[in-house]
Nucleic acid binder design. Structure first.
Lengths: 243, 243
DNA sequence: CGGCGCGTTGATTACTGTCAAACGGTGTGG
DNA sequence: CCACACCGTTTGACAGTAATCAACGCGCCG
């Protein structure tokens, strides 16, 4: 990893708790293999047993699971700084694939080095653990969204989540961000048909809170959007606290 | 915790990896406060900042989140041996409540003692981390279920998950188990209306794979049920492996 | 006995999926 | 340069799924 790439992970961890210089050095010392992927390409295969964990450096990725009838469900969207499959270090077998949502770049860090970190750095271990717990909290929010929210609320909630997380990483330009997935991919995130995604999107646009065309999203009125879909950013744990 | 209660946690951890005697002793040495709860009672409140983590010892509990319009979604069901809110040690603020599903008993273990364990026992730390990762894998399965499965498949999948987890804990009697939630609670697990839960249940009964009355579930033909709802137990990680 | 909680059923309404067609942009080949 | 195919988006009609409303049955307990 070069300086920029390492800094993503350090910033990601430091967003939740202060780190010592020694801890930063330990992160920087991690070896990493960089790779680029085209949209739709698979970063990690379902049912595989990875030897490395995959850190998104640029672009978007998603966790996807496939059903027998060819249907697909996406269970998370990942942004730069996310360790998409850190859990594979302990779970061993992937219960989902990781796919590129738009072109993306990722760093692959050997499990063995991460494991060594857990032997020597309890605080860093807790911080890495913490990132997987935030991940789980996001999944709970998706469950609530899928189970109990209207189509418009679901879509709004997804946008609020992404906007908030991307802003924390610092890649929001003004009130807009690039979001490359096709409506078919979005339908797999929201558990809807593609046609209904399109109609829901039209409804959402008509509220005036969001503009979304040519793979660029503009959040016109975040507060009202958040209110509409009951988005409360606390579950993202975007503050420092001793962990 | 008395011997039985401690052994639940040890067995739970040992199901995933071998533990040393010293590690077992460290678990046994954890202080714990026992409490009993009536059905529907709150073990842990949403938005609270717990000082203890809650381990289910007997009965069932669930994670629940509430929406402004009074709707509720349950994002996980917990059984004896589960650390329902271990994540609160690092996330600090609860993003969900924990409620009793039927009468249940729980052990509350101070965060400070668990944290101390993470300072001194890297392997135990990884095992505890691992339990939260299995948890997250279960949540992903729920997302797939909510997003892309028919009502009958969703209900079947829930039963397969519970049957498999309960059998691992050893509380399945023959092919049956007690499952106390009302249909209203189940509707909050599956994101359906109570009426539709009732009709779906009738459909499921008519397949003959499952009997379910008076809060007792009997899995008549697990294999065919599992096939119907594409249940594959691997994501539950019920095997030992160096972690 | 009457009230209450829970399960069950039927009728109606609303939401969401499927099918089909058309539109617009892009890249390729003639 | 245009014709064409391809991909993704958009729209309308229709079918199927699930929510809502309402009523009833049943067992339990005061």
């Amino acid at each position: 990893m070069n300086k920029d790439e390492r800094s993503f992970l350090i910033n990601m961890l430091e967003r939740h708790d202060h780190m010592s210089d020694e801890e930063r050095q330990a992160i920087i010392a991690l070896p990493a293999r960089m790779r680029s992927f085209a949209s739709g390409e698979e970063l990690v295969a379902e049912d595989s047993r990875p030897e490395e964990a995959c850190l998104i450096v640029e672009g978007f990725a998603a966790r996807a699971q496939y059903l027998a009838n060819g249907k697909r469900q996406i269970s998370a969207v990942h942004i730069p700084g996310d360790f998409v499959d850190l859990h594979s270090m302990l779970l061993k077998v992937m219960d989902h694939a990781v796919i590129a949502v738009g072109p993306c770049r990722a760093a692959f860090v050997p499990h063995i080095n991460l494991r060594r970190l857990t032997e020597t750095h309890p605080h860093l271990t807790r911080l890495l653990w913490h990132t997987t717990l935030v991940d789980a909290a996001i999944q709970r929010a998706w469950i609530v969204s899928l189970g109990r929210m209207s189509a418009e609320q679901q879509m709004g909630h997804l946008l609020c989540e992404l906007y908030t997380r991307l802003r924390a990483v610092g890649v929001i330009e003004g009130d807009s961000f690039d979001f490359p997935p096709t409506q078919a991919m979005i339908s797999d995130m929201l558990g809807m048909s593609t046609v209904y995604v399109n109609k829901t999107l039209a409804n959402l646009r008509s509220t005036g809170f969001v503009e979304w065309r040519d793979r660029r999203v503009r959040i016109v009125d975040f507060d009202r959007l958040a209110e509409m879909c009951e988005f409360d950013p606390r579950y993202l744990n975007l503050w420092q606290e001793p962990r």
